[in-house]
């Protein structure tokens, strides 16, 4: 199923560059609806659902800002609205709409994919698809460190503050504190990396490729249809440019 979702992302990204803006708007709404209603694309956790809602608000705000800024600053072309101090140009509005629709379509597709796919499932899929062990290991280790690092940063911050680091002083003082906080953070990470590598080596990591079990899953019909759509869009774009 992850392959189908990846094919959907590829389809939306190709559409964002190959198809006219009006068609992109349709696909953008399709992506919104899929992310909201279709179980396969629905956010996988309560936190993911919150992120999705926040993204929808962000996308609306972003589109408005992009359109307004471009309408204000792109001066050439017909003037749509003249408020004596500021003028809104047609070219600016059109450019802003084009850019924001493309951005929101691409962003929605990728976000719907990630929010509906737990990263551990993605790592398992990559592994089964034949991705190098390094890639999946780094991905999974990153998730573990991401949970621990904020706490470590907080500990170092508090410790340095207790030692008198000027974390609330003027700009120069705070800048010096940056070094005193990031230094121990990076050093401890490097030392722990060496220790972890010993632990991994003792467990026989990485296993030789012939010892890894891979259960490849065939592509589904929707995935093939989306890939065919991508090929058709690229073909149409090429035909149009050489016509």
């Amino acid at each position: 199923m992850i392959a189908t979702k990846l094919a959907f992302v590829l389809f939306c990204w190709t559409a964002a560059f190959a198809l006219p803006t009006a068609v992109q708007v349709v696909f953008m709404h399709v992506a919104f609806i899929l992310g909201r209603f279709l179980p396969l694309f629905r956010p996988s956790s309560a936190q993911a659902r919150r992120l999705y809602v926040r993204f929808l608000l962000y996308a609306g705000l972003l589109s408005a800002v992009v359109v307004i800024l471009n309408a204000l600053f792109v001066r050439n072309g017909e003037v749509l609205l003249d408020l004596s101090v500021v003028q809104f140009s047609r070219n600016g509005v059109e450019f802003g709409l084009r850019v924001s629709v493309r951005l929101v379509l691409m962003s929605t597709a990728i976000l719907v994919f990630f929010l509906s796919t737990p990263l551990r499932d993605l790592a398992a899929f990559l592994d089964s698809a034949g991705a190098p062990a390094v890639l999946t290991s780094v991905l999974l280790l990153s998730l573990e460190f991401l949970e621990r690092l904020p706490q470590r940063i907080e500990q170092i911050f508090t410790a340095q503050e207790a030692r008198g680091a000027p974390v609330r002083a003027g700009f120069a003082g705070r800048f010096r504190s940056l070094f005193s906080i990031l230094g121990p953070l990076i050093l401890s990470s490097i030392v722990e990396s060496v220790e972890r590598s010993h632990a991994l080596a003792l467990r026989g990591f990485p296993a030789p490729p012939e010892h890894r079990i891979r259960a490849r899953q065939p592509l589904t019909i929707p995935a093939w249809s989306l890939i065919a759509g991508v090929v058709a869009m690229i073909g149409w774009k090429l035909w149009e440019s050489f016509r």
Binding site: F145, S189, S197
Partner: peptide, 20 residues
């Protein structure tokens, strides 16, 4: 060797250093 955990730390540092 230690590059694998360090790469993972690198990813995590990139994403969390904004907190500092």
């Amino acid at each position: 060797g230690p590059a694998i955990p360090l790469m993972a730390f690198g990813v995590a540092i990139n994403l969390t250093v904004g907190q500092v």
